[in-house]
Computed example of a mutant assay.
Amino acid sequence: MSRSRSGIRSGSRTGSVGTAPVVFQAAALLLAYPDRDWDRRPRTVREAVAGLPGREFPLLLSFCGQAEREDPLALAARYVATFDRSRRRCLYLTYYTDGDTRRRGAALARIKSVYRTHGWLPPDDELPDFLPLMLEFAARTPEAGTALLTDHRAAIEVLRYALEAHRSPYAALLQAVCRCLPGQAPASREEALRLTRTGPPAEAVGLDVLGPFPAQPRPNDEGARR
């Protein structure tokens, strides 16, 4: 996947419409691959959250501080190692609930339908369940976007637990996002995993059922390109 294709721009602004949209936009920027515009993203986040009250913002600023001290090439390598080389830390949320099954195709189509219903057109060359994409939608369309994230909360929480176990700096971003979601969080990783198990084990059908979506290989612990 070309990491610059997520449709997320460093110049994005969410406005003063509450804490959650600001957190979602910031996390969207910081969870996208650190490509050529990376040096502007932490600065954009710092400017957006400066002086804002809320326990989520120190988490974002902590990540920014650590990322800004890291060599860009090392940060890019860390990103790949964190998200591309382990199925446990996948950024594609329906993978946690549906694996590579026909059900996943339907789940992706439902997410894309929500985007279209609200007049939001994500890039055709990115899967609609890519977390940074879903976060930007939630920042721009707070009511529908927050509901969509909440529908996939179990997967988000599983990813958060995995990043915490990996001692990844990216865990702070997931912690900030989870604090903005309504309702009660799963009490444990095991509970979050149970909530994602809504279907049978993976079918060997691939993702060719997705029509306009590009076929993507299943993530695995040895590495994958999505």
Rank of each mutant, 00 (worst) to 15 (best):
141 T>K: 12
149 L>H: 01
134 M>P: 03
157 E>L: 11
142 P>G: 08
96 Y>D: 03
95 Y>K: 02
197 R>L: 10
112 K>E: 06
196 T>G: 06
186 P>S: 15
164 E>M: 12
198 T>C: 11
206 G>N: 14
143 E>M: 06
143 E>F: 04
152 H>M: 09
160 R>F: 01
205 V>Q: 13
192 A>T: 09
188 S>L: 04
204 A>I: 14
132 P>E: 11
159 L>A: 03
126 E>D: 08
108 L>H: 09
111 I>E: 02
184 Q>A: 15
105 G>P: 09
140 R>W: 04
180 C>K: 06
194 R>Y: 14
170 Y>F: 13
177 V>D: 12
136 E>D: 12
128 P>Q: 08
148 L>E: 12
120 W>P: 05
201 P>D: 14
156 I>K: 08
163 L>T: 07
110 R>D: 13
99 G>S: 03
120 W>V: 10
146 T>G: 12
111 I>G: 03
135 L>G: 10
124 D>A: 14
149 L>A: 05
150 T>A: 11
124 D>E: 13
182 P>T: 01
168 S>D: 15
123 P>A: 01
196 T>K: 07
139 A>Q: 03
175 Q>C: 13
114 V>Q: 05
165 A>W: 11
131 L>H: 01
115 Y>D: 10
149 L>C: 01
141 T>A: 06
155 A>T: 01
93 L>Q: 01
163 L>E: 02
167 R>G: 11
110 R>K: 04
174 L>M: 15
115 Y>A: 09
181 L>D: 03
164 E>Q: 15
132 P>D: 13
136 E>M: 08
156 I>Y: 04
116 R>F: 08
136 E>V: 03
130 F>A: 01
168 S>M: 03
105 G>S: 06
98 D>P: 06
134 M>W: 01
145 G>K: 09
100 D>K: 01
173 L>D: 08
119 G>C: 03
130 F>W: 02
156 I>F: 04
191 E>D: 13
175 Q>E: 15
111 I>F: 03
117 T>D: 09
181 L>G: 07
104 R>L: 04
125 D>M: 03
122 P>M: 09
98 D>Y: 15
